[in-house]
């Protein structure tokens, strides 16, 4: 117990003394984007406690409150809805929080699934080589020649045809995660495969082979930990892409349904009112999406540069 505490403590100290932390404290862009990202993620995760209204509880909605502009922008807004309300009297700010929660959940889940699939396949391809390698990489090539959004649309379309409507609405979130992850694994696989091919010829692997360790132990226990570094960079940038893909799909009407809206769904709903001069229904969810994705992207960029030895 004390040992492991010591260990993690010393790791933390190591981290604070390391280059990464040093770079971080010297880069205002990194600090600002990191703080923004963390605040966004926190608000999304804590939507249930932070949001002033529960948008899923129909009993709390008052239709009389519908279509109110933000109080600071129109003469008849109400203070408790500081970003206005939508066509059913739902508070826009609460909607954004709950919507962001769904968007972030879909994004994170897709990143994790893509990463697991991509790392396993990349490790397999890189270590096994030969036909297995060619096969996996050709599949990846084919996959890369389709835009991610197209694959996601295709999968969603097929699922829509297969599942009855009621079921589809309930499963929409899983269909989305599946659709986004399946188009995201390629990057992980390619990166990991490249690193594995380099590592494969190093002495410690040779040593393992000489003492007769089975291949899977060498691959998983010895090679894998040495090739995981780039994963954080890809993961961060992929998170931003996944959130955008989710928003695009929902905006096109093939993602989340209006009853459990994500940020993309909110923007789509609001879009109907844009021509009618009710700009707040679509503008604020749009801004929220921009802030979230931009902060994740900038932080990811910084992380990539910071971890790239060539840039030192």
């Amino acid at each position: 117990m004390a040992d492991s505490e010591m260990k993690s403590n010393s790791k933390w100290v190591q981290f604070l003394k390391g280059d990464l932390w040093y770079d971080f404290t010297r880069s205002p862009v990194a600090i600002v984007s990191f703080i923004t990202m963390v605040v966004c993620l926190f608000l999304a995760a804590a939507a249930q406690w932070v949001a002033p209204f529960d948008i899923f509880d129909l009993a709390t909605l008052e239709l009389m409150d519908a279509d109110l502009p933000p109080p600071w922008a129109g003469e008849y807004g109400e203070d408790k809805f500081f970003l206005g309300t939508d066509d059913q009297g739902r508070d826009i700010w609460s909607g954004i929080l709950y919507g962001a929660q769904i968007s972030v959940f879909v994004g994170l889940a897709s990143v994790i699934i893509s990463a697991i699939a991509g790392v396993s396949l990349g490790l397999l391809a890189g270590y096994a080589g030969g036909r297995i390698d060619s096969f996996i990489m050709r599949v990846a090539d084919i996959q890369l020649s389709f835009p991610a959004i197209l694959i996601a649309l295709l999968i969603d379309g097929v699922m829509r045809g297969l599942l009855p409507r009621e079921l589809h609405d309930e499963l929409a979130i899983y269909v989305l995660i599946f659709a986004i992850s399946i188009s995201g694994w390629v990057q992980y696989a390619r990166t990991i495969r490249g690193s594995v091919m380099v590592e494969k010829h190093k002495e410690y692997v040779q040593a393992g082979l000489v003492i007769g360790l089975p291949s899977r132990i060498i691959a998983v226990k010895h090679i894998l930990p040495n090739v995981l570094n780039p994963l954080f960079v890809i993961g961060t940038i992929h998170l931003a892409t996944a959130i955008i893909t989710e928003a695009t799909l929902s905006f096109l009407g093939v993602g989340m349904s209006p009853t459990t809206p994500s940020l993309g769904t909110l923007i789509r709903i609001g879009n109907e009112y844009l021509l009618s001069g009710e700009w707040w229904i679509t503008l604020f969810p749009g801004l929220a999406l921009v802030v979230l994705v931009l902060s994740v992207n900038i932080f990811g960029d910084w992380l990539r540069d910071a971890l790239n030895p060539k840039l030192r």
Binding site: D57, L58, A59, L63, Q88, G89, R165, E166, T259
Partner: peptide, 27 residues
């Protein structure tokens, strides 16, 4: 669809949980 959702929120106030299954007219 908006009328249905509005009706659902009015029903919710008297305790009736109304789920709205809104579909294109063909379906």
């Amino acid at each position: 669809e908006k009328i249905c959702i509005a009706a659902a929120s009015m029903m919710a106030k008297i305790g009736i949980k109304m789920k709205v299954l809104a579909q294109p007219k063909a379906k």
